[in-house]
Design a protein around this nucleic acid. Structure first.
Length: 291
DNA sequence: GTTCCCCTGCGG
DNA sequence: CCGCAGGGGAAC
């Protein structure tokens, strides 16, 4: 679900609500691969930690604590981070299998997919991490500890330069689409924004990377950054289940040109948008506008 | 490099 | 029943 813009929207919403707050209690579901750090360790080591700030690294979000420790979060495909409260209440009530808290005045709801909850030492809303498919991740890093996943990330897509993309393209035989999705090249790009940038730059997703010109890399990076910033501005893409921490939908899905528009006419030339599979992921493109 | 896997839910 | 889904990692 969440790519760079969605994670950034979440970060901006959460940061003012979490910064300066001290954790009192952690509630989790049973151990699973969702927890790269075990629930027991999280409960023990997070209590008493005070949030200093939130930093986004590609599609990862890290909560940085005054102690120097860091809580690394990844939303996977269906992860949702939100604060308890009225909007979130609406959100969960609109989904299946909701369990209302038994108290007379429910201030929040959880369900079996709510895997991680962080309560603070005051009565303000707490943070919930819900993830239906459990492809998301939670990991606590000690002071100075570097996670190998983060170490492997390339330049954040918003700061990437065309020349770096061009060099990456020259060194691979794979399709350009796969290069754009490679987090060690451009951190934060996912399937929606890769397809949208390729359309905007007029490059077909199947094109072999070494055959993408320097000029096209320039167009790709420019398009990508314009699209990512526009998506952040509009609150991200809510195609299936993305909501921000207040439970609100984004609006960028209305500005998609090709992603999940298979069979629809191209907005530019009216040719039918095609879909094919590249690297096990759907790719959507206009056969006329992209070569 | 592909291929398969993790997991749940939805829609045809 | 089947295929599909904003992700990523590991094994051939």
């Amino acid at each position: 679900m969440p790519e760079l813009p969605e994670v950034e929207v979440v970060r901006r919403k959460l940061e003012p609500q979490l910064t300066g707050r001290t954790i009192r209690r952690i509630v989790t579901t049973e151990p699973s691969y969702f927890f790269l750090t075990s629930p027991g360790t999280l409960k023990r080591r997070l209590r008493g930690q005070t949030v200093r700030g939130l930093v986004r690294k590609g599609k990862y979000l890290s909560l940085e604590f005054d102690s120097g420790n860091t809580l690394l979060l990844h939303l996977g495909m269906t992860g949702q981070l939100f604060m308890s409260g009225a909007s979130s209440l609406r959100l969960l009530q609109s989904t299946a299998h909701v369990a209302l808290s038994p108290e007379a005045q429910p201030t929040f709801v959880t369900d079996k997919h709510t895997h991680f909850q962080m309560y603070f030492d005051d009565d303000r809303p707490h943070m919930l991490f819900r993830d239906v498919r459990k492809f998301g991740k939670v990991k606590l890093l000690g002071t100075g500890e570097i996670d190998p996943r983060i170490a492997k990330l390339g330049t954040d897509a918003l700061k990437a330069d065309p020349e770096a993309l061009f060099r990456a393209c020259k060194s691979r035989k794979t399709a350009i689409k796969n290069v754009l999705l490679d987090q060690s090249v451009l951190a934060g790009v996912g399937n929606i924004y890769a397809d949208e940038a390729l359309f905007a730059a007029g490059v077909r997703p199947t094109r072999r990377a070494p055959r993408v010109t320097r000029k096209e890399c320039g167009r790709l990076i420019a398009a990508l950054q314009r699209i990512l910033l526009r998506s952040i501005e509009t609150g991200g893409s809510s195609i299936s289940d993305f909501v921000n921490p207040d439970g609100e939908d984004g609006k960028f899905q209305d500005e998609r040109r090709v992603y999940a528009r298979t069979g629809e006419p191209c907005c530019s030339c009216s040719e039918t948008i095609k879909r094919l599979v590249i690297g096990q992921r759907s790719s959507h493109f206009c056969p006329h506008c992209q070569s």
